[in-house]
Design a protein around this nucleic acid. Structure first.
Lengths: 195, 195
DNA sequence: ACCTGAACACCGTTCAAGT
DNA sequence: ACCTGAACACCGTTCAAGT
C-alpha cells in the first residue's frame, strides 16, 4: 500500500513554494495550448525559472500532470459515488461517463495518458485513474443489476470506451465525441423488450 | 482533381531506386517497432544513407507513411466495393470495419494519422483516407437501406468509431478493440423488433 | 540527377556549483 | 534546502558542396 504521492508539500521554503505554484500555473496554460506533450522548456521559460527547477519539483512529466489533474480526478471518482443515489441507474452512468469524457478532453493527449496510466502501475497517474475506473465499475454494476446494461460489459470496457471517445472528440469535435459515446453506451445495453 | 501523388517513380537512377526501396523497407521495420513517430534518423542509419537522402525521396513523414500504406489502403477501399455484393448488408459492414481496425493497428500511432489526415486536406494521406471513408459510407448506406442501421449514423461516425476503436486496441489489446467495435456497431443499429 | 554530411534549431535530462 | 545554468545526447530539417 503506497501513499498517493507528492501533494503540494506543506512547509516548503517560500521561494520554492512560489516556483512550484508558478510552474503549475504555466504548465496548465502550456498544456492547454499545446497538449500534454508540450515543451517542458517552454513551461520553465514562462515561469521564469531554470530548467533544473522544474525537475526538482516534478521529476517526470507524469508527476506534473498528476499535480494538475489530482483535484479534478478526485471529483470524478467522488461523483461516481454520489451518482449511485441517482434514481435512474442508467442515467447516472451516462451523466458520469459524459463528465469523464469532458475531463479527458481538457488537454490534447490526455486520453492517451489516462489509457497508459491505467495499464502502467508505476505511473504517477495510476492511482487516480484506478479510482476513476472503480467509480465507473460501481455505476456499471448498478446499471447491470437494474437490467439496462449487458452483464458481460466490464469496467475495462467502459474505461476504454470513455477514453477512446474522448480521443476521437479531440481529433474532431466534442459533438462527435457525444455521438460516439451514445452509440457505445447504447451498444452496451440490453435490447429493450418491446411490446 | 489531383493525381494520387508520388508513386514509386518510373525511371529513377539505379542508385536512387535502391535507396528509395531500402528507405521504405527500413521505415516499415522501424515504424513497426516504434510506431509512426519513430526517429527518421534511425531509418536513414539502418538504410545506410545520409539524412538528406530521406528528405529528397520523402519530403515529409506523411509522404513516407503514404508510400508504405498506399497498397493496403487501396485494398481496403476496393474490398468495400466488393462487399456490397455480400448477401448480408450488416455482416458486410462488420467484416469491413474489422479489416479497417486491423489496418489502423499495424503501426502504433497510425489511428491518429488516419484521423488527422481525413480532416487535413493537405495531408499526403488525405486521398487514401477519403477513399476508405467513402467505402465505409457505401456499406453503411446499404445497411441503413436494409433496415439494420439507424438512419442518423453517418460515414464520419463510422470512420471515427473505427479509428477510436483501433486506438484503444493499440493501448490495450486487439481483443479490447474487438469488444469496443461490436459495442459501437451494436449501438449504431436499430433496435430489433422482438416478437 | 542524386547523394553527402555539416549546420542550425530545439528539446529532455542530469548534475556540479552556487546561495 | 533549493536554484542555476552548463553540458550531453538526440532529433528534425535545410542546404551548399560534391560526384
Amino acid at each position: 500500500m503506497t501513499t498517493t504521492g507528492p501533494a503540494p508539500q506543506r512547509r516548503m521554503r517560500a521561494d520554492a513554494r512560489r516556483n512550484y505554484e508558478r510552474l503549475l500555473a504555466e504548465a496548465a496554460t502550456v498544456f492547454a495550448e499545446h497538449g500534454v506533450e508540450a515543451s517542458l522548456e517552454e513551461i520553465t521559460r514562462r515561469a521564469g525559472v531554470a530548467n533544473g527547477t522544474l525537475y526538482s519539483h516534478f521529476p517526470t512529466r507524469q508527476a506534473l500532470l498528476e499535480a494538475l489533474l489530482r483535484s479534478r480526478m478526485q471529483t470524478l471518482s467522488g461523483s461516481a459515488r454520489e451518482l449511485l443515489d441517482h434514481p435512474s441507474a442508467h442515467e447516472a452512468l451516462v451523466i458520469w461517463a459524459r463528465a469523464v469524457v469532458a475531463h479527458a478532453m481538457v488537454y490534447r493527449g490526455l486520453a492517451i495518458s489516462m489509457m497508459r496510466s491505467i495499464e502502467d502501475e508505476t505511473s504517477q497517474l495510476h492511482a487516480a485513474c484506478q479510482a476513476v475506473l472503480t467509480g465507473g465499475e460501481r455505476l456499471l454494476n448498478r446499471a447491470q443489476a437494474a437490467g439496462t446494461v449487458r452483464g458481460d460489459a466490464t469496467a475495462a470496457d467502459l474505461y476504454a470506451l470513455i477514453n477512446a471517445v474522448a480521443w476521437a472528440g479531440e481529433q474532431t469535435s466534442p459533438a462527435q465525441a457525444e455521438r460516439l459515446l451514445s452509440f457505445g453506451i447504447q451498444g452496451m445495453c440490453l435490447p429493450v423488450a418491446s411490446g
